[in-house]
């Protein structure tokens, strides 16, 4: 293993694992996913210098996660019903922890591509254009996938307030707020 590659794995490995964990929702699977992607990146690493190694590896993780081979291998089945469907949550600060658990359960039940879009948009803070590039789809596809995923979240009974309406009406998407990870 080249020193530069090893340095890259040591310094960016944690961030890659966090990303993989969020898209696949399982620690062990995330570890496998990152390793599979890094093996592929390493082949290219030795041939030509990878310009943006983190973005390149993140893309490899995404492709690996969305690949039909991995889908067959993991045999993940969509949940028949979303978790805690009957629970009503009032969005008070002390209930936020419960809300987050509920949201995470809903996110894990989303179709893979929608989940990836949400993670890239709300965790990695990528623009829709960058997400489209990662996924190799049109920007409009990214927007529609995100809209569907957010609609699933908003429509979840546990995430509605006492009046039965969603937590908040949809608003235009804000610009990224965080510095790059």
């Amino acid at each position: 293993m080249e020193a530069s590659f090893e340095d890259f794995v040591r310094t960016r490995g944690p961030a890659l694992l966090r990303y993989a964990h969020l898209v696949c929702g399982d620690g062990h699977q995330a570890h496998d996913l990152v390793q599979d992607a890094l093996v592929k990146v390493h082949r290219r690493w030795s041939v030509v210098e990878v310009a943006a190694p983190f973005a390149y590896t993140r893309r490899a993780i995404t492709n690996e996660y969305l690949s039909w081979r991995r889908r067959l291998r993991s045999r993940e089945l969509p949940a028949a019903s979303l978790p805690d469907a009957g629970r009503r949550v009032t969005p008070a600060p002390d209930d936020e922890l419960a809300d987050r658990e509920l949201v995470w359960g809903v996110v894990r039940g989303l179709p893979r591509r929608q989940r990836v879009v949400l993670v890239l948009r709300y965790y990695e803070d990528l623009s829709d254009r960058d997400i489209a590039e990662v996924l190799g789809v049109a920007e409009s596809t990214v927007r529609s996938q995100a809209a569907r995923a957010l609609a699933t979240l908003r429509d979840h009974p546990g995430l509605r307030d006492d009046t039965g309406s969603a937590l908040a009406a949809p608003a235009p998407r804000p610009l990224p707020r965080r510095s790059p990870r």
């Binding site: 040591r10 694992l17 964990h21 969005p91 709300y122 998407r173």
Partner: peptide
């Protein structure tokens, strides 16, 4: 919903497996 989603993803990222064995 978006705010909650961000917080949830930030929280959950903290539960990612350790990278100590990765290399």
């Amino acid at each position: 919903v978006e705010r909650l989603l961000r917080q949830t993803l930030d929280d959950e990222a903290g539960r990612a497996p350790s990278a100590s064995r990765l290399v």
